[in-house]
Simulated scan of single mutants.
Amino acid sequence: MTSPPADMLSSAAPPRTWRSAYLRALTWAFMLLTAARLAAYAPTVWAIVLMRDSRQHSLWTWLIWVGANATMAAWMYEHNGHRIDKAIGVCIANALACLLTAGVILWFRF
């Protein structure tokens, strides 16, 4: 059995430069939007602290987000050869930010 001609193989996949550019853009988008998400937690925490009232914020929701971010970090760690990378760090940071928010909600609720 013979291999297909080289020109058939190269036409099946996008050029490597496009793939590299796409992966770079995707990585930057992930990092920038996640950084924005981390910054977006601050107004909620600040509002609770200033108003000294957390009744309008769902503790259940914030605890679910803690769990979701923490388990995503653990899942990524397990599927990344037990190495921590930037994406795992971002998930951990999100889990901690959600935990902080849940802690502030609890502090002013009780």
Rank of each mutant, 00 (worst) to 15 (best):
S20E: 14
N80Y: 11
W46Y: 05
L33P: 00
A70M: 06
L100D: 04
A70P: 00
V66S: 04
T17H: 04
T27M: 13
S20K: 11
W75F: 13
A97V: 00
V90N: 04
R52G: 15
I88E: 11
V104K: 06
I105E: 07
L26I: 05
S10Y: 01
T61Y: 05
N94G: 14
F30L: 14
Y77D: 07
S11H: 09
G89S: 07
V90A: 15
R16C: 00
P43Y: 02
P5K: 13
I105W: 04
M8G: 00
A68Q: 10
H82W: 04
L100R: 01
D53G: 02
A73D: 09
L26R: 15
R24G: 08
H82E: 09
A68I: 08
M31S: 10
P4V: 10
T2D: 14
P5Q: 12
S10C: 03
A6S: 13
A25E: 09
Y22C: 08
I88F: 06
M51N: 12
C91L: 01
V104N: 05
A102Q: 04
L96E: 02
W60T: 11
M51K: 11
I105S: 06
S10E: 13
H79Y: 08
A25G: 12
L32I: 15
N94P: 00
I84G: 06
H82A: 10
D85Y: 02
P14G: 07
N94W: 00
P4I: 12
W62F: 09
M1V: 06
W107P: 02
W62A: 06
R55M: 03
A97D: 01
G89C: 11
M51V: 00
W75K: 08
H82I: 00
S20C: 04
K86Q: 08
A6T: 03
L33V: 03
H79R: 12
A13L: 10
C98M: 00
R37Q: 13
W18N: 08
A70Y: 00
Q56E: 13
P14S: 11
H57K: 07
I84M: 08
V104I: 15
L100V: 09
S3R: 11
D7M: 02
A102Y: 01
A13G: 02
S10M: 05
V90D: 07
A25V: 12
T27L: 14
T44F: 07
W75G: 15
L23N: 15
T61G: 02
I88R: 06
L99W: 01
A102N: 06
S3Y: 08
R55N: 11
G67M: 02
T2C: 10
A13I: 08
A12P: 00
C98D: 04
L33M: 11
